[in-house]
Design a protein around this nucleic acid. Sequence first.
DNA 1: ATGAAAGCGCTAACAA
DNA 2: TTGTTAGCGCTTTCAT
Lengths: 342, 342
Amino acid sequence: MKQIAQETGVSVSTVSLVLNGRDEGRVKPGIASQVRDTARKLGYTPNPLARSLRTSKTKILGFLSEEIATTPFAGRIILGAHDAASALGYMMLTVNTDRESDESEEISALKRYGVDGFLYAKMFNRVITVPKSFGGYPVVLVDATDSKGAVPGITPDEFRIGYDAARHLIDAGCSQIAYVGSDSPIVAQEGRRKGYRKALADAGIPYNPGLDIGVGNNRPALDAVSSLFDRAHPDGFFCFNDARAWYVYECAARRGLAVGRDISVVGVDNHRVFAETFAPDLTTIELPHYEMGYWAAYKLISLIEGRDPEPDLPETTAGIPSLDSPLPVRIHCMLIEKNSVA
Amino acid sequence: MKQIAQETGVSVSTVSLVLNGRDEGRVKPGIASQVRDTARKLGYTPNPLARSLRTSKTKILGFLSEEIATTPFAGRIILGAHDAASALGYMMLTVNTDRESDESEEISALKRYGVDGFLYAKMFNRVITVPKSFGGYPVVLVDATDSKGAVPGITPDEFRIGYDAARHLIDAGCSQIAYVGSDSPIVAQEGRRKGYRKALADAGIPYNPGLDIGVGNNRPALDAVSSLFDRAHPDGFFCFNDARAWYVYECAARRGLAVGRDISVVGVDNHRVFAETFAPDLTTIELPHYEMGYWAAYKLISLIEGRDPEPDLPETTAGIPSLDSPLPVRIHCMLIEKNSVA
DNA sequence: ATGAAAGCGCTAACAA
DNA sequence: TTGTTAGCGCTTTCAT
């Protein structure tokens, strides 16, 4: 900057003004463009560190998540958040809080590095109490809801996932529609079940508890699904996730039933590759992790800057609500059509 | 710091010296501990920004990877790198270079933010030319090898993966051992095949080209594996990855063959959950992404600091070679025993 | 409309 | 052994 000032024959303050776009009635347009020119000529790039030291704003977001390594979600959330951040001139300092690592430790480390705010991501939708270590910093939750309702966050619309899935099966002509859910009463499980039941009700299909099962994993789950097949002969399945869908897929195969012909299956796909590689005949719903990450970073930045920045949202986020939405926000999941359903 | 200085009745330079552990024969021990005390009392935390401005060292690593969202590997690499960085007092600025995003653009952004060096991760093992945009910064590659041999990097020991897998099947008593490989001639594919062939040779088992197939994905792959079953009746399978393993699994199931009883299967597991959920009877080899990330960050920091820092490596990295290894480094994959093999 | 100058919190010569 | 001082590169009053 000093060099630019000299070269142009003005003072550093003028340069600063111009380069920050705060000329406009304060610096003569001629001078301004002259400054901009020499800046370009000299290949000037601002030093964010120095700027931060002065302004105590770093344009760095702290991203705090658990189990970044053990779930395939983290990457998509991070990517979305990163894209939004990047579009608004921010960077992300990513930290994970697996195992014993002390969360508040990590938080204060991020604070020391001067992050302007925090993204706090959980790896499955649940209600949490936001760590007090965040102090007064802006925080936005991802895939989590603040139990106190004070911190903004974004979660998938679990109800609508269930509703749309069941609706999809109904539209495909299924009449015996099973829900192969989880045996944990987590938010996603309960929300999706409610949606499933509502869709049935709206279609005038009586709810049959025998078709609504919650299963765990591995052998027991496979056994439970097996018995569901033999007991109730469902012609449509809504599966909590891809693992559950796989049990259905496997049981069907063993009975010579073809997905898409004899039975219809809609499942939530946790692993992306799943539907493509392991069960290509399934209709899958993808959780909007990218979109949640995007929205959250976007929201966080608007909080930080005390105003709504207005860059374009990428195509994929068409369903994302405005930043003014009440908290927490839910976003809808898109149905991805894989193959025709029976 | 100023406050500490006043409180203790010394100058800021003394405080700086003490707080950076550079007293020792330069500051009277009494004063030193006094300074430390008041620092603690005042709850002092250093401002890395200010320090960086002065030293032009940020203790921030730039992590550059592709497809962070589309592969399950990225998370594990990032986690490993983050753990190492964290253990050495570093943070990581993560950036992904998917799609159109201009790599050199991202690199210079990271430079502006003052990163001390770069981790450059690829999502599958290959030979690359390192972007010149890195300039003179320290760079360490992950899952990639510099074609010029100038930049250090770490990759899985593909040969040994193949060798150990085949060896495992041999030890289990298999005699007709197939390799269900990839149809792309990527590093992993060729390395693993070589290892497979060497293990056979070492065991005096003649190589049968009919048992060594490269397949793509989906239906064609399934068909190819089917024909392998019917043509050669292998009793052991080494699979390039979990997708390939799944084709074997599926074909076996359709023929009433049980994995672990009628045939033995060893596969490289790309997705972690795969072996547990979709094919729980498989023996899997896990790629050491965590370890690669860890090693790479560790190495990068040693490069940055011009010396070998010496914290403890975590348990899981027992197999990681010393930092003095020639470049590029390869690391071995652990065999994870899942179930007994036929 | 522009410039001078102070200072963000810290480090590192150099003096004392 | 300790203190003084000069910045690192930038922003921001406050004069002019």
